[in-house]
Amino acid sequence: MTDVPFIQVEDVYFSRGDSDIFRGVNMTIPRGKVTAIMGPSGTGKTTLLKLIGGQLTPDRGRILIDGQDVHRLSRKALFTLRKRMGMLFQSGALFSDLDVFENVAFPLRVHTDLPDTMIRDLVLLKLQAVGLRGARHLTPAELSGGMARRVALARAVALDPELILYDEPFVGQDPISMGVLVQLIKRLNQALSLTSVVVSHDIKETLSIADYLYLIADGQVVAHGTPSSLEVNQDPRVSQFMHGEPDGPVPFHYPAETLYRDILGHDLAIKAG
């Protein structure tokens, strides 16, 4: 049973308005591992997480989590499935009307009948794991970005989920809190034998924790493999991204007419006019 992948993304198509975001994405995400989904900005990495979490519905194809088709579940069954998932949002998305303690206690209060004393102990343990036990009385507005993300992480693991989805966990972090987050994600995954999906474009940090990588661009998976195999991949699209080269298959310039025409054409038009 453990050999069955935890998440299967099968031939998913998704478009928003007139633009196609995914054109036939296939992925299998194994249990108990850290799988990273990488790609340039604007390729729909966050959209993919939202599809997995059931907030968006694909135009075609299906996504199975532990054998259940996410988008064929009733609203109630979907919410039940979500109790087994945690998600770390880019902004942290802490509830602004609750303090740090109550934010972490929130999933426990709504989904369990545990007595207050036990909830207190559990919350303090989770906060201890992210190093913020002392900050329990602060409100989200009083936290720095890095602290907010750590509180959000504590909240995401409050119910001991089987799967955690990380949406750009390293964006906008200073080197110290970046290091803390990398360590936390790695440690949590090992300690709780979670399945983790990390969406990111921070190559160094992601490579250091990922067991397996998917690289998406232009609505498709362009490469996948272990970090070491992708680093030596010769595909220009892969190597441009992995080595951070400014120009390549992904152009530096947004599509435009030539600079010559854009600048001189304007002058000529004025002269003629």
Partner: peptide, 22 residues
């Protein structure tokens, strides 16, 4: 609206709580 913009509603959904009810 601000709860929506700061993803609080989405995160509530992901915790398995229906924001419509809560």
């Amino acid at each position: 609206g601000l709860m929506k913009a700061t993803e609080q509603l989405t995160s509530m959904e992901m915790i398995g709580v229906d924001p419509l009810r809560r």
